[in-house]
Amino acid sequence: MMSNFLEAIKNRRSYYGISKEQVVSDEKIQKIVNEAVLHTPSAFNSQSTRVVVLLGENHDKVWDITADELRKIVPAENFASTEEKINSFKAGYGTVLFFEEQEVVEGLQKQFASYADNFPVWSAHTSAMHQLVIWTALEEAGFGASLQHYNPLIDEAVQVKWDLPGTWKLVAQMPFGKPTAEPGQKEFKPLEERVKVFK
């Protein structure tokens, strides 16, 4: 029988239609994130992931920042579709920002010099695990979410707005909210091409 964990992983999807309607309390959202950060593994137990949860006006602000930064590089005649996409994220209830603390990564590079080149890669793996856990947990709570990557475009403005340490490297943004539309059809490549078992 499939475990509840695998069922949750199976059900996790990318939702692009989301609203500001409250699904659970803000305290519950914080508890979900706290538990995920506390219990998600990390390479060398580095605990390098840093997470910022933006709700209310702060959630809106990160997408205003994103639109402002994109307006600088997207031609005006092409901006309408970009703005529509940004507004779909802003329409949600909140955003989770994922960072990696570079002081931790660099400290491990110095401590274990023979693995130095691998620590930035392992840091990315660590962040990815946190993203999956929080994404799945939010969906279990009734939210829909997606994962976005507007870094490094918005990094400096985000750091200044929320007075974050310069050593926090932004990795991804996860807007979430009450689903207002079904996710797209999932397509799977043949497992025979992706999994090999040797007995």
Rank of each mutant, 00 (worst) to 15 (best):
L147D: 00
V121S: 08
H149K: 01
E156T: 10
E156C: 08
Q148I: 06
P165F: 10
T136M: 05
P120W: 02
I134C: 02
G166K: 14
E140V: 06
L138G: 00
P152M: 13
W135M: 12
F119K: 06
H125F: 11
I134M: 10
N118K: 05
A137F: 01
L147V: 13
D155T: 15
K161A: 07
Q131L: 11
V160Y: 02
Q131R: 10
P165A: 10
E156N: 15
I134H: 06
S127L: 12
A116C: 09
Q159P: 07
A137V: 00
A137M: 05
S123T: 00
T136A: 05
E140P: 00
P165D: 12
P120L: 04
V158D: 15
A157F: 01
H125D: 02
P120S: 00
I134L: 05
L132T: 11
Q159A: 14
I154R: 15
H149V: 04
V160Q: 11
Y150M: 05
D155Q: 06
H149I: 13
L153T: 14
I154V: 15
S146F: 06
V121F: 11
P152G: 07
E156Y: 04
L147A: 02
D163P: 09
G142E: 02
S127W: 01
P120Q: 00
S146T: 13
T136D: 04
Q131G: 06
A128M: 08
W162E: 10
A116E: 13
D155V: 02
P165W: 15
N151W: 14
H149A: 07
L153V: 14
L153C: 07
L153R: 09
G166C: 09
E139Q: 10
W122Y: 03
A157T: 13
N151R: 12
A157C: 08
V160R: 02
K161R: 09
Y115W: 12
S123Q: 01
S127T: 10
Q131K: 08
P120H: 02
T126S: 14
V133A: 14
V158P: 14
G166A: 15
S123K: 01
Q159F: 09
Y115E: 10
N118Q: 01
